[in-house]
Each structure stands twice: as structure tokens, then as C-alpha cells.
């Protein structure tokens, strides 16, 4: 399996978690912080607020690096969820309770092959979304920038999510098994 972009970020984030490697963190920061800032601006923040919140998001990335599970999400996806939650606070949107995290304990690790395939699927999803017809891609972006309400979201998203969902489902089953 070829090592794609996704896997590179996984390796860097693991170095942050395991050895508090500031060079690895700097590489993640350089790539993701401006994207988080742009994401927050697109979501309605002004530049100063977006800068401050993007830094907050990167602080959370450092602190929670050890809880990242590469068999269930890409680093971009994980950072998206942190940025989304920060945006909800920032714009004083409705509270968003979450199901409790299912975490691997310190003794256990996700399966290496699960990580490889999930990261590869995530890379392919980025490519697939980039290739969607313009109109559909814009609707997806608007939804994730928080511009669409539930009733404005299409019943059929037309997103190719079957394979990545199955991968995550499998990884969840292994995690559940390790917990029992």
C-alpha cells in the first residue's frame, strides 16, 4: 500500500503524542493552522477571532494528540471536529452533546492494517469530493461551514461514503472487542 498524505500526518501527530516533538508539531501547524483559520472565517468569524481560535484548536491538537485514533479518522478529520466544536463555542451556537469517546487503553493499539486502509480511504474521499460537480461541492462546503440548517441539507447527499463507513465500522468492532 502506498504511503499517502494522510499517513504522513498520522506519523507526525504520533511523534507529538509520544515525544512532544516540536518539529513535528511545527509541520502540522504550518499545514493545518491556516486551514483552520480559513475554515473559521468561512464560518463567519472575523480575522482576529479566527486567528485566536485557530491557535486554540492547535493547542487542543497538542494536548489531545494521544487520544487520536488513526484507524477511525484522518488527522484532517480529527482537527475538523476540534475546529467545529471551537466554532460552536465561538459563535455561541446551540450546545452539542456528544456520545462518550471509545478510546484504546494505554496497553492496546489499533490494528496497523486498519490504519493504512482508513488513511487511504480518507485520501480518496478528499479526491472524490474535489471531483464532484461544482454545484454539489459548493453545497457540501456550505453545509460544513455551518451555513445550512437541517431542512436545507439534501435528503440524498450523493457522497461516496459506503467504503469509509465500513472501514470505521470494522475498526469500532475491534475496539469494542478489546474493551470486552
Amino acid at each position: 500500500m502506498r504511503a499517502g498524505k494522510g499517513l504522513k500526518w498520522v506519523t507526525l501527530l504520533r511523534r507529538v503524542a509520544d515525544t512532544q516533538d516540536t518539529d513535528a508539531f511545527a509541520a502540522l501547524f504550518e499545514h493545518f493552522a491556516p486551514r483552520v483559520k480559513a475554515f473559521l472565517i468561512k464560518s463567519g468569524a472575523d480575522h482576529a477571532m479566527a486567528e485566536e481560535c485557530a491557535q486554540d484548536v492547535m493547542v487542543t491538537v497538542w494536548r489531545k494528540a494521544g487520544q487520536f485514533d488513526a484507524s477511525r479518522a484522518s488527522v484532517a478529520t480529527w482537527i475538523f471536529t476540534i475546529a467545529r466544536n471551537r466554532r460552536i463555542d465561538m459563535l455561541r451556537r446551540d450546545r452539542r452533546p456528544e456520545p462518550e469517546d471509545l478510546n484504546w487503553g494505554p496497553e492496546e493499539e489499533p490494528d496497523q492494517l486498519d490504519i493504512l486502509s482508513l488513511q487511504q480511504e480518507s485520501d480518496q474521499l478528499v479526491a472524490a469530493i474535489a471531483e464532484l460537480p461544482e454545484k454539489q461541492r459548493v453545497m457540501i462546503e456550505r453545509a460544513y461551514f455551518g451555513e445550512l440548517s437541517h431542512s436545507e441539507i439534501a435528503d440524498e447527499t450523493g457522497l461516496p461514503l459506503g467504503t469509509i463507513k465500513s472501514r470505521i465500522r470494522l475498526a469500532l468492532e475491534r475496539l469494542r472487542h478489546s474493551l470486552s
Binding site: S74, A76, T77, T81, L125, V126, Y144, F145, L161, I168
Partner: peptide, 15 residues
């Protein structure tokens, strides 16, 4: 998680 992955893809491509 697959819908969150779409959010990850949007974040990756927000240029």
C-alpha cells in the same frame, strides 16, 4: 465518522 471525514476533506481543501 464518515460524515466527519467529509468535514476533514472540506478542511483539507479550504484554500
Amino acid at each position: 465518522a464518515s460524515f466527519d471525514a467529509v468535514g476533514g476533506a472540506v478542511l483539507e481543501e479550504v484554500s
